[in-house]
């Protein structure tokens, strides 16, 4: 942007050397660059449901949509219209792509409210309007880099394609998958097939190790050259912090509520440090959902940090429109 408040202005030193003054949230010293955009633009169309099966507390849907399946890369998502063409639910439901193959893709639906319950109720033969693939995929590490995958709840589904791709490219892959209880674990079979070591945690101890994913992650992160995570925001914050503290770059796929999924509504924003060191409200859909873990200002999500680009313009004095006007 051309109108900064000067916080990151380059300073000329007497030696002629130019340095960036240290400011909170500046880009200096960050481990990850912003994830590059996807190669293929999204498409919109009707997809035919070809499979539906319960997977613990969730429903796995498989849909026929060759153009989406062929273009999709791990980390990307699709956005479903729900309730049919006359639906009173206007907003798209954005869900991570869990797997692709043979012109089909799959998603794991967590039926919570009316929209996701409608999606989870789709049966083979049903058609649904889908836009995808959307968002920036997980960047792949240099050859030979050992990777640690961390999934929370149904967020683990977003790592399945990535785990398979990393293995096929010869990377060592370790994985930690966690949830509140056994029923809310996801993609355990798929990820255990590609990852070793593979650790399961549940908060209540109903499966695997009792506790959060952060325990095993702290043990495994030193052996990793890169960390990939998808799950609830507090988990992403904790995992990114563990990785950053040990100098390991991380990529997180965030979950923010989106109205459109395609970048026009500006509802799914969160504070992210850009390539220039300035923090902005970045869109989870088109600037993410994959961000470098140390660029997301997790502690500031849901607030308006004063150093954000354009935050100063939010408090400008407003000239009253008219005397005593109170609509």
């Amino acid at each position: 942007m051309s109108q900064d408040d000067g916080a990151t202005r380059m300073v000329s030193l007497p030696t002629g050397e130019r340095v960036l003054p240290p400011v909170p949230g500046s880009g200096t010293g960050l481990l990850g660059q912003p994830a590059p955009p996807a190669e293929h633009p999204p498409v919109q169309g009707l997809a035919v449901v070809v499979g539906s099966r319960p997977v613990s507390a969730y429903t796995e849907l498989t849909l026929e949509a060759p153009d989406i399946a062929e273009a999709a890369r791990p980390g990307q998502f699709v956005a479903f219209a729900v309730g049919g063409p006359t639906s009173a639910m206007l907003l798209r439901r954005s869900i991570a792509i869990a797997g692709v193959g043979g012109g089909r893709f799959s998603v794991v639906v967590s039926a919570k409210a009316a929209g996701s319950t409608w999606l989870a109720g789709l049966r083979p033969g049903d058609e649904v309007d889908v836009v995808g693939p959307l968002g920036r995929p997980f960047p792949l590490p240099p050859p030979g880099t050992p990777a640690l995958l961390v999934g929370g709840g149904y967020g683990a589904a977003a790592l399945v394609g990535l785990g398979g791709l990393l293995r096929s490219r010869g990377h060592e892959v370790a994985a930690v998958v966690g949830a509140g209880d056994e029923d809310r674990l996801c993609s355990v079979e798929d990820l255990s097939a590609v990852a070793a070591p593979f650790v399961v945690t549940t908060d209540d101890g109903s499966a695997g190790r009792a506790g959060r994913v952060t325990g095993p992650v702290a043990e495994l992160v030193s052996g990793a050259g890169v960390v990939y995570a998808c799950g609830p925001m507090p988990m992403l914050a904790a995992v990114a912090q563990l990785a950053t503290d040990r100098g390991v770059p991380s990529w997180v796929a965030v979950e923010e509520s989106m109205a459109c999924g395609v970048g026009v509504c500006m509802t799914c924003v969160l504070p992210v440090v850009g390539a220039d060191g300035r923090s902005r409200f970045a869109r989870s859909c088109t600037d993410g959902p994959v961000f470098a873990g140390d660029r997301v200002r997790f502690a500031d999500v849901g607030t308006l940090p004063p150093d954000l680009l354009g935050a100063d313009a939010m408090t400008l004095a407003h000239t009253p429109a008219g005397e005593g006007e109170t609509p």
């Binding site: 942007m1 109108q3 923010e256 500006m266 509802t267 799914c268 924003v269 969160l270 902005r280 409200f281 999500v301 849901g302 607030t303 308006l304 954000l308 680009l309 354009g310 935050a311 100063d312 313009a313 939010m314």
Partner: peptide, 8 residues
């Protein structure tokens, strides 16, 4: 001027 918009 550029505006950040409101908090989520």
């Amino acid at each position: 001027r550029p505006r950040s918009g409101r908090a989520t």
